[in-house]
């Protein structure tokens, strides 16, 4: 019997699954962005002292994991599973970042939706009684993503206005079964949604329908409205996708107000930083969550948050073969509820 499922596909986390600690590591551009003051750990060297961008990405994850585990008050031996992924082929960013640990590891590929995917699986593992503490982690690096998905960095290509800038950053969250806050209350995994967008320079448009599908499903299943939340945050829809999501949901009489924003819009200053439609990449939502949202929840500035990451599930091969871009969006409901606060 499925006692955790609500409605068509939202899952209630019955036990205590809470955020024990988190950490973000970012690059220079992110540090200089509007959320720069939230990022304690950063490097102005795009190589992070390594000799390749891929190694730099792994290093960021490793550092984020080190800081998050330190802050949790536990050691690596106390953690059962790591759920981690990134954008690189065969997820080498994550595979190499965890190779010096003995923690059991699940490699994920959810494109830019990986942060919430990791949190969902981690919460399920804890609530299902399989683990007491897990790590959810992801990263992206502008330079490693550019050369895998687009052109060499120094190649003189013109970016379309709808293109986004891959965030150089990593985020790591340690989840545990302790009675603390914020706590994961519900999770809503996404379904793949493809509305026929082919333009790799317009990822926001490719992902917005998946975000609309997941958010609508969650609100319907829980019988709540957008006004019930302090903050609804999508992953990396950017300016174009942000507008499209609002538009799509308005057709279903769901109106997103001032409490809705997008990590891709928050992390850069679009006026002074040449990022066109905003930030993207796994590291975008991961660093905004771990550097900005969760600390704000810890000081109770936000108490009820929907964190929904979005991913474009194409590859350069599928795009060259004329395929459209399937999107996905995973949602996590984080809350500092009265009961949990009283127990904390």
């Amino acid at each position: 019997m499925n006692i955790k499922k609500i409605g068509s596909g939202t899952y209630k986390i019955h036990g205590n699954v809470s955020v024990l600690s988190c950490a973000a590591v970012v690059g220079d551009m992110e540090k200089k962005g509007p959320l720069g003051h939230c990022f304690e750990h950063y490097s102005s060297d795009e190589y992070f002292g390594q000799d390749s961008f891929e190694k730099a990405e792994s290093y960021m994850q490793k550092e984020a994991m080190k800081y998050a585990v330190e802050k949790s008050g536990y050691t690596a031996e106390d953690i059962e599973f790591i759920f981690a992924g990134d954008l690189l082929n065969q997820c080498i960013g994550s595979n190499y970042s965890v190779r010096d640990t003995a923690i059991q590891f699940f490699g994920l590929y959810g494109a830019c939706s990986t942060m919430a995917e990791g949190l969902i699986l981690g919460a399920m593992a804890i609530d299902g009684g399989f683990a007491s503490r897990v790590i959810a982690m992801t990263s992206s690096h502008f330079c490693s993503a550019e050369r895998q998905f687009r052109f060499p960095l120094e190649y003189g290509a013109v970016r379309p206005r709808s293109a986004q800038w891959t965030v150089t950053g990593a985020g790591c969250v340690v989840l545990g079964c302790e009675k603390t806050f914020p706590r994961i209350r519900h999770v809503c995994p996404g379904a793949v949604c493809d509305m026929g967008i082919k333009d790799m320079g317009n990822m926001g448009a490719a992902m917005a329908p998946a975000a609309a599908l997941t958010l609508k499903r969650f609100l319907d299943d829980t019988g709540t409205t957008p006004e019930d939340y302090d903050l609804i945050l999508s992953g990396d829809l950017g300016e174009v996708g942000y507008d499209l999501l609002k538009n799509l949901l308005s057709h279903d009489n769901i109106f997103l107000g001032n409490n809705y924003d997008d990590c891709g819009r928050l992390i850069y200053d679009r006026k002074t930083q040449d990022v066109h439609s905003g930030g993207s990449g796994c590291g975008c939502s991961a660093s905004v969550l771990t550097g900005y949202v969760l600390p704000k929840m810890r000081c109770r500035e936000y108490n009820n948050v929907l964190f929904m990451t979005t991913g474009a599930l194409m590859s350069p091969i599928s795009s060259l073969q004329g395929e459209t871009i399937p999107g996905i969006a995973h949602l996590v409901h984080l809350q500092n509820d009265g009961e949990v606060e009283a127990q904390a």
Binding site: V158, P160, R161, S162, M195, G196, I197, N202, A205, P209, E239, V240, D243, L244, N247, L248, H251, S277
Partner: peptide, 23 residues
């Protein structure tokens, strides 16, 4: 919303590069 309808919406909402400026 149907896919064709959505693609039209995307076309409307996507900021285009200015041809005159680019030229």
């Amino acid at each position: 919303m149907r896919a064709e309808e959505y693609q039209r919406l995307v076309y409307q909402k996507t900021e285009k590069n200015s041809l005159v400026k680019d030229c």
